[in-house]
Design a protein around this nucleic acid. Structure first.
Lengths: 236, 236
DNA sequence: CCAAATAAAAGTCTTCCGTACTTTTATGCA
DNA sequence: TGCATAAAAGTACGGAAGACTTTTATTTGG
């Protein structure tokens, strides 16, 4: 095979970064408003470029450190899939090695290199995932419908499916809740993937079906709300 | 970021190719005996190199066409994972984009370019998967213990886990049985992943728990063995 | 200080599913 | 014809999932 036919493409690391707002009780996704071509002015998943002598996992972690100044450990990042369509980028060919990251906090964002804006979007607001199925997602920014850059709507769709599939045996998405969480909070994370609301999921049954995945670690004392204080759990 | 730090690695397409022997009733894996360095003389998963203007999926299919002269459709090939450790190859850096392919027949093999031998190995003989867990697999060729090239033991381990996870909701591995199959044959495919034998899986219960995945298409008439003729199923 | 409101845990009951086991059916072969 | 074989079909039990009810622990307000 002649060497000139061999691809040596650019390797893009694309990270679907999840978080959770304890004020709005909603799952969040991080999107970047692109400054540069291609897709300047579009919202996109945060990306970086793989460096020599760097594993893709390390690059995904570096991406988070550079863009939002948060250091995450390896357990919070997992590989999603690799997208290789030669037509997925307009200019130089680039493979997208995609990852998912679960942040236990929701840090303030400052747009980094190559971005005019960086924002947390409520997952439920972004994703009517019937739209995501066909790879095109229109979501709303300031009442304006918008598309995602590149094939990022498709990537997001794969991400959502992956999380949904793992909900019943490896709910890594719950890492967005930090080291401990209540069952209510867990249901708030589960709900959008099940096309329902947290209050529509029976707490008692939820505990019975999922407690093998959790370890009880105490009771939440600090809350100034009425009602019986909830128990705290961590991931098993 | 200075351009000289950006990786433009070689893209290796590695394919875990599964098949099924209707004479020995055993699941099979295709391995290549490498002719060239690195890892000359080692057994390895079949590989090729991604070409320009070619998707990785297409490359995985081309690999099968070139190495064993079998044309497979897209549905029989699925992405597994991407391996990016800079130390996974001794010379030039290469990312491994791995795929799985399920062949409905078990074609005769002729070693192709870069191979001194190509063989089907019975999966049960190859994989004591406790060994696979740690990424090192020693299997036996003519009573000789052998290692796999590169990180291929690790790749095989991930492949096995993936198949096992999907056994109860998307048993794509059953494609090795061709368009139609009996429940006995399905159990023969399932058995090694469940650390048991086909006869130890109760046929009646297997049908009840898995029939939502199958569609009944008729009865096998042509067999010259005693006993009630089995029904034929296809994947739903 | 006590009752109402609230929120979550804990418990109940029914249905359904997985599993071990048994029976029936359909074939080949002596 | 009947015996062996192999698979389908059926039975019965235990336990999990889900709808619903009761209890417990807290805040709020009179």
């Amino acid at each position: 095979m002649a060497d000139e036919f061999v691809a040596h493409p650019l390797i893009t690391i694309t990270n679907v970064i999840w978080s959770f707002s304890r004020s709005t009780h909603q799952l969040q996704i991080l999107l970047i408003h692109r400054a540069d071509e291609p897709f300047a002015g579009y919202w996109a998943l945060p990306e970086t470029t793989l460096r020599i002598r760097e594993s893709a996992d390390a690059a995904a972690i570096r991406l988070i450190r550079d863009k939002i100044s948060v250091h995450v450990n390896r357990g919070s990042t997992e590989q999603l899939a690799t997208f290789t369509d030669p037509a997925r980028t307009p200019g130089e060919r680039a493979l997208a090695l995609t990852y998912m990251t679960y942040l236990p906090t929701m840090p303030k964002l400052r747009p980094g290199y190559g971005a005019t804006d960086a924002r947390w979007f409520a997952f439920e607001a972004v994703a009517g995932d019937e739209q995501l199925q066909n790879g095109r997602l229109t979501f709303h920014v300031n009442q304006q419908a918008a598309d995602l850059a590149f094939d990022h709507a498709r990537i997001l769709s794969v991400a959502i499916q992956r999380i949904r599939n793992k909900l019943d045996y490896q709910p890594t998405i719950l890492q967005v809740l930090g080291p401990t969480f209540t069952l209510k909070e867990a249901r708030e994370v589960y709900a959008p993937f099940l096309h329902t609301t947290a209050s529509a999921i029976d707490n008692s049954n939820f505990k019975k079906t999922h407690q093998r995945l959790f370890i009880e670690v105490g009771i939440a004392h600090d809350r100034s709300r009425s009602g019986r204080p909830p128990k705290l759990f961590k991931l098993a």
